[in-house]
Design a protein around this nucleic acid. Structure first.
Lengths: 95, 95
DNA sequence: ACATCAAATCGACGAACTTCAATATGAATT
DNA sequence: AATTCATATTGAAGTTCGTCGATTTGATGT
């Protein structure tokens, strides 16, 4: 995945809070709105769209609700990529 | 380091190009301007300030010139932190 | 002191981003 | 089909960001 797109997705406090909430659990939009407390539904929806476009969240529909969860594997891959590009000398060789 | 600040520092194409240039070598501002080709000196200076505030570059003065290089260790630490926070389940345990 | 060169700062402009009220869409229930 | 509930979209306001011309700062050499 594009490193700039990944960084932009992470480049907002609220979005990182949402990512924390969605790490290791599925929540619907309303749940996220409730837990953040100070952010309105359209704003949360907007942030989720950005995370979705960056392919950092998985979604699942259940009735009227749509559940989101963080795609940890995608995050890990992007971070590994950043290290390879911007911190190659910190990688230790094996064998 | 603050994860949002780190992400913001990476959230720009030009800045990532500069980071690539400064990876594994020291360059002065003029060098960076020349190699980018399409970005003016004040802009490069501005980007370097942002990278410096995020503590992602080291600097060294030599006469009138100031040399910059990427702090790979800092990048690696930030990436490791991101994985711990947003991709904990991808970390394999080692007794 | 003065000239020169490298880098930083200032001020301005347009583009992109965050936020939200209002509204629309779409699924489930009656 | 009308209502209800969850989510998405729209449009607008305010803010931040990227860029650059002009200027300043600061170090070196004459």
């Amino acid at each position: 995945m594009n490193s700039v797109l990944f960084a932009k997705a992470l480049a907002d406090e609220t979005r990182q809070q949402i990512m924390s909430l969605l790490c290791c659990q599925w929540l619907c939009v309303t749940d996220v709105v409730e837990r953040l407390g100070n952010v309105k539904q359209p704003t949360v929806s907007h942030h989720l769209t950005i995370l979705r476009d960056a392919e950092l969240v998985d979604t699942r529909r259940e009735g009227k609700q749509i559940f989101y969860t963080l795609n940890q594997e995608a995050v890990a891959i992007c971070c590994r990529n950043l290290v390879q590009v911007f911190a190659p000398e910190t990688i230790e060789v094996e064998s």
